[in-house]
């Protein structure tokens, strides 16, 4: 464990806290992509199957359960609970996620770590996580302006994988046989997708006054 990875996990947890607060307190899922939340639920449920047989640390196992529980709760609230479910707009949030899931599944089959069924599923979850934010970014693009809490949610989510990139650099230079090309590649793509958002987020938050984040 190193500071980058710890901060990355904390940023990830923060993104869950912000989103859960927003949809439970704010009683609205407006501006939030259910599609992206469904993809995250698939990512965590598939990647953390090894909860039952791989025990790396209590920290790891505990957060795996937390991430599966939070992502499932978010999908449940936006899909089934009133009044949130009425604030979700299927016409706006209509990104064809099958075009994300399909290629990631093929990539997981072809490019993975140990050619075992779990490793294929694990690689699938890594590739899927890299593109899972796309429906959310497309929704924000359509709306042009980003609600304040939503902008903090997306920023925390982007920061989590950005911090993981630093963690991989740190581990590469401090551990001898550390090699994780799959997550290095996927994590770089994932963080890259946020660059444009980060630019507009920074522009809107600069100088302290919180002007709304505007996406062109």
């Amino acid at each position: 464990m190193n500071i980058f990875r710890f901060l990355g996990d904390m940023s990830h947890i923060l993104s869950f806290v912000i989103l859960l607060l927003k949809i439970t307190q704010g009683k609205s899922a407006a501006g939030i992509s259910l599609r992206t939340q469904e993809l995250y639920m698939i990512v965590f449920c598939s990647r953390y199957l090894d909860l039952f047989w791989n025990f790396s640390s209590l920290y790891n196992s505990f957060l795996k359960v937390v991430f599966i529980a939070c992502s499932s709760a978010i999908v449940y609230i936006i899909r089934f609970k009133s009044p949130q479910k009425d604030t979700w707009n299927p016409e706006l949030d209509n990104f064809p996620i099958q075009y994300l899931i399909g290629p990631c599944a093929v990539a997981g089959l072809l490019i993975n770590q140990d050619w075992t069924p779990f490793e294929m599923i694990w690689a699938f979850s890594i590739y899927l996580e890299a593109v899972a934010i796309l429906p959310q970014l497309f929704l924000l693009q359509k709306q042009g302006e980003v609600e304040n809490l939503t902008s903090h949610y997306v920023a925390a989510l982007g920061a989590y994988r950005g911090l993981y990139l630093m963690n991989w650099v740190y581990r590469y230079f401090t551990e001898d046989d550390y090699l994780q090309r799959i997550v290095w590649f996927a994590g770089t793509v994932q963080t890259g997708l946020y660059i444009d958002f980060f630019y507009h987020y920074y522009q809107s938050k600069r100088g302290g006054l919180s002007r709304p984040v505007k996406l062109p």
């Binding site: 990830h12 790396s56 790891n60 795996k64």
Partner: peptide
């Protein structure tokens, strides 16, 4: 076969 490396990251 390389020993299966346990994924220690989330």
């Amino acid at each position: 076969l390389a020993p299966e490396r346990v994924h220690d990251e989330l």
